[in-house]
């Protein structure tokens, strides 16, 4: 016996769907998580409309606010990545184009998440 893998585990993800089911399900989970986070985002940004720099900083410094904002950003960037990926898979044709678009989506979503989360942490920890 050369390895301990079951035959099923060897072929999983090798079909034309690849890991499509996992992506589909996690996209829906992100969508459900986005419902309360978007409500929080809208309510708090309307409530703080027109505030000054110092007031915004003081608001974000609250632990619950910074945590919720970070969760919102991580969740929507992941939702955005899988969503845009789906659009690319439907409308962008050709192996090279598809990979170029996929890389652009991956990198820009990571950049958005990185910059936003760092900014919130910097404010929260008083930078």
């Amino acid at each position: 016996m050369s390895d301990m893998n079951t035959p099923l585990s060897k072929v999983r993800g090798l079909g034309s769907g690849k890991t499509g089911t996992e992506t589909f399900i996690s996209h829906r989970i992100q969508a459900v998580a986005n419902i309360p986070l978007v409500i929080f985002f809208i309510v708090s940004f309307v409530g703080n409309a027109g505030k000054s720099h110092a007031e915004w900083i003081a608001w974000i410094k609250q632990p619950i606010v910074s945590v919720l904002l970070i969760l919102f950003i991580l969740n929507f960037t992941n939702h955005m990545r899988t969503g845009l990926q789906e659009v690319v898979e439907d409308y962008v044709h050709g192996h090279g184009n598809k990979w170029a678009a996929t890389l652009a989506i991956r990198f820009s979503c990571a950049l958005i998440a990185g910059l936003s989360v760092f900014s919130i942490l910097r404010i929260a920890f008083g930078g």
Binding site: I57, F76, T77, V87, I120, R122, I123
Partner: peptide
């Protein structure tokens, strides 16, 4: 609208970076 929101996400990032950068 999903693609529009991706553009909105860039604006939100810009705004947060500006908030962290300074007055």
């Amino acid at each position: 609208t999903g693609s529009m929101l991706a553009f909105g996400a860039i604006l939100l990032t810009w705004w947060l970076v500006a908030l962290a950068t300074g007055y």
